[in-house]
Design a protein around this nucleic acid. Structure first.
Lengths: 191, 191
DNA sequence: TTTTCAATGGGACAAATGTCCTTTTTAGTG
DNA sequence: CACTAAAAAGGACATTTGTCCCATTGAAAA
């Protein structure tokens, strides 16, 4: 549910240690919007600490959360390859620390650093791999099953992430999520 | 709706022309399953002609279509980066021609051919970019709106792709799709 | 041509989810 | 500590979508 990539985190920290002027550290407080949908930016971010949500909002203001990003996850990288606007907003949930790098340097690294190139390639592939079954599951199963599934992979999810965000992640209304949680609780209490 | 990547198609054909022994051409007839979910393969395919569907099926046999792939789209590449099982099945819809290449050669190309590396990177990024808004839209809007949207981007979709596949692409039952199509027709007939 | 089977279309009802509101709880602020 | 605003919980009802059928059509096979 909260995606991480420790291998990438380790490597970007190592680069930061060796080559401080290309990579810079930034800190953000909770609920801070780092990237806004449909804009242009010229930096790629790597999370070293904390959690963000990455979401699309439509004209009615509905948010649909794509991913929760944790340590080692990158964002802002898609726009390096296809020079278009961002498709997602990224907003911090907890305090956040990032290492960031300009598009120019990112490109340079991709060309000169084979290992870096491979890590980014793998990170992209993993994003695709991860999304497919998730959306498939969400469509095919009732809300309750989705909640059970979340509980399994991340038992304390209700403590860290707000109900609204969880609902937007599953793609349902808060009302429906509450209903599912209540029914689930009643069922487990009976036992 | 049917994704293509002409730039990649052009380049892989060019490579095929120059270096025939690493890349081989294959032909498949309609409804042929080229790749099956949860298996291992050692080839990457590039479509040069025809259409396939790429889908996940669950334990109840429900199919959820991730993408329809057309000219220039690749499949089987995700497993090069994370050496796991396939997450999708890929099945031809029309006759299909592909150029395929072994994992080993694919990796070699990525390392030695900068342009190829960049094209693959971009192809991965585009797959991510494309998926996000699509799933968001499908969750947020009723079936009818989704059908209207498909009509806009691919007017003759009902002729090429079966109702069942369209329904599995939108993530609804055939019954619901038919209902939506009927209501849509009634509305437009009134005008 | 007849037969067969899959694809399509749709009726009737059930179940899941959304909408609209109101109440309760919680956390933060003056 | 009291006050306020946001988050959470849930009642009542409407709407959407699914399930379970069966009828029709069309195309491929015998």
């Amino acid at each position: 549910m909260i995606r991480i990539n420790l291998e990438l985190a380790r490597y970007i920290k190592k680069l930061y240690g060796a080559n401080e002027h290309d990579i810079s550290e930034e800190k953000f407080s909770p609920k801070h919007k780092i990237i806004e949908q449909d804009r242009r930016y010229s930096k790629v971010y790597f999370i070293t600490e904390g959690i963000t949500k990455c979401y699309i909002s439509d004209e009615n203001g509905k948010e649909f959360i794509q991913e929760f990003l944790g340590e080692g996850m990158e964002f802002g990288e898609l726009e390096v390859f296809s020079k278009k606007h961002t498709i997602c907003s990224v907003e911090t949930i907890t305090q956040l620390k990032t290492l960031s790098i300009s598009h120019t340097c990112f490109n340079a690294l991709l060309e000169t650093d084979n290992h870096f190139n491979r890590l980014i390639m793998k990170a992209l592939a993993d994003k695709i791999r991860y999304k497919a079954p998730r959306h498939s599951y969400q469509h095919s199963y009732p809300i309750e099953d989705n909640v059970i599934r979340l509980k399994k992979i991340f038992p304390e999810f209700t403590e860290v992430i707000s109900k609204k965000d969880i609902a937007n992640y599953i793609g349902v209304t808060t009302r429906s999520l509450n209903r599912a949680l209540k029914e689930l609780k009643e069922k487990t209490d009976q036992l």
